[in-house]
Simulated assay, not measured.
Amino acid sequence: MTTLRNALFALLLAFTAAPAAAEVPMVGRFAAEARCPAFQSLRQETNPGNVLVEPGKSYQLLARNADPASHYYIVVPGAEPERRWVPIGCGRVSDGSQQADADLLRPASAPGSDERPALYVFAVTWGPAFCEGKPSAPECAGGGKGDRFSLHGLWPQASEYCGTAANLRDRPWSRLPEPAMSATTRRSLDQAMPGTRSYLHRHEWARHGSCYGTDADRYFSDSMKLLGALNGSALRPLFVERAGKTLTLRDVRAAADRSFGEGVGWRVSLHCERDGRRRIITEMTIALAGKITPSANFSDLMAAAPPVRSDCNSGIVDPPGLQ
């Protein structure tokens, strides 16, 4: 039985990860917000020419690799070959008027209210690694927290910027409207998401929370509940214990299996960046599916989502303080 279950997992992963079988056509532009590798092959993580997308540049958008997506397929002029895969967290998508995927034309309704389970990406940051790249950020005054994961965002996969005025999308985060939430929720959010000092919460609400189907208070409260479950799992001590050492995706997924159920580790992805001679883990994303409520079970949400690829198989867990 175990052999059969493992075989089914491998088969499902193959269908989810293979670009030729699972890519979903898209029409529009990809606006890069970070320098990220542009892969020719997701499966082999090959990058001829060591091509990077550059912040502030816009690229033709061709497809995403799956639902939920981990990568976008874009055209990088001058690269050989010019068609490349980039992680979704490296920028934002502006869809064209003739969207190839009809699902993306429909704004997200309340979580789980559609006939199919709603799909999400839950993103968390490892503070010290983030601060290596942005040491001047207000939240990095102490080098970033190294004892727990910090909230980046909860991203509905059906759409972005729902009902958001077009002229707000390119504004600096400090000039975006402040999401309405209770004082209690805001105090908790300041602890869970140190990036509130850089107005990250305004960006997350405008881009992703607006498509969640609730008000901002509920959106951030649900996000923090998920973060609490993650920080209460075997994943947090694993990162703490490996500070300064290399951590593999295999070990991360095994810890997820121990905490949330056999096989759910396939929903976890790592994202890494170069820091001098080191390759450090900056972020972890988790695929979720279903109706997210205050009583929702994190294990069930993970198990309901399809397996995903990871663009990083190992990296160093950055210790507290700038290295």
Rank of each mutant, 00 (worst) to 15 (best):
L151N: 09
L11A: 15
A255K: 07
L227N: 06
W126G: 07
M1W: 09
P19H: 07
A79M: 13
T164H: 02
D275L: 05
G144N: 13
L226T: 04
Q323N: 08
L189R: 01
M284H: 07
I292A: 11
A234C: 07
S182D: 13
A66L: 03
R277W: 13
G213H: 00
V86S: 04
V51G: 07
A255P: 02
R279M: 14
P117M: 04
R35Q: 14
A141R: 09
P194R: 11
T184D: 15
V93A: 07
E283W: 05
E204G: 06
G142H: 09
S295M: 06
P107K: 05
R236C: 08
A100W: 00
A303P: 06
F30A: 08
E139P: 05
R279H: 14
S188F: 10
I88T: 12
R267S: 12
T293E: 12
K57S: 14
Y161H: 12
H71C: 08
D114I: 00
G290L: 01
Q191N: 08
A305T: 02
R218F: 01
N50W: 09
A183N: 05
P194F: 11
M181G: 06
R250Y: 08
D190K: 08
C140S: 10
P179A: 02
K145V: 14
R236I: 11
E178K: 15
Q157W: 00
A303W: 08
S269W: 05
E132R: 15
N50P: 06
G112W: 00
E241S: 15
K225T: 08
L288S: 09
R43F: 10
S58Y: 12
T184H: 03
L61T: 00
H203G: 10
A38C: 01
L105F: 01
I74G: 01
D190F: 03
A234P: 03
A69Q: 06
R186W: 15
T2P: 00
L301H: 06
A108D: 07
Q323L: 13
P307N: 04
P320K: 03
R187T: 14
M284L: 15
F239I: 11
V240N: 03
R5M: 08
H271Y: 15
F260N: 06
A165E: 15
P177N: 10
Y161G: 03
P128N: 12
A234I: 08
G195P: 02
L61Q: 00
A14N: 11
A304L: 11
Y73G: 05
D215W: 08
L104W: 05
